[in-house]
Amino acid sequence: MGTAHLAGTTHLAGTTLAIIDDVRSIIAKSLNIPVETLTPDKRLDELGAESLDVIEIVFALEEKYDIAIPLQANDATRVSASGKPEEKSADAAGGNELPFATVGDVAEMVEKLVAAKASK
């Protein structure tokens, strides 16, 4: 597990260890699964996350880092139903693409939002 974690971390260029560790522990707590199983390449839907779980995880991260993560349950349900974010027509106003699929994606997104906040 440790190796996979490290390998995953390397692949996440630019994501700090602190953030990936926070993301992993928040997801582990929300889904009630051991944190060691949460390698960055794991998909949230494969881990059993349903739309309400995704919403709770996003809320916990927003609170922790004082950021706003763009997400609609509409999109979260699409992920858990089909396994990947559905393509939506560009004129589908109000429907944001789900910004992440894997644990690593979540960490990257948090990293970006934290950086954007710091640069303001």
Binding site: I55, Q72, A73, N74, S89
Partner: peptide
């Protein structure tokens, strides 16, 4: 809002483009 089910524009029941 926290449930993330609110549409930002309008309600489009049963339409593929529905947004909440």
């Amino acid at each position: 809002e926290a449930l993330r089910v609110l549409s930002a524009d309008t309600c489009r029941p049963f339409s593929r483009t529905r947004s909440g």
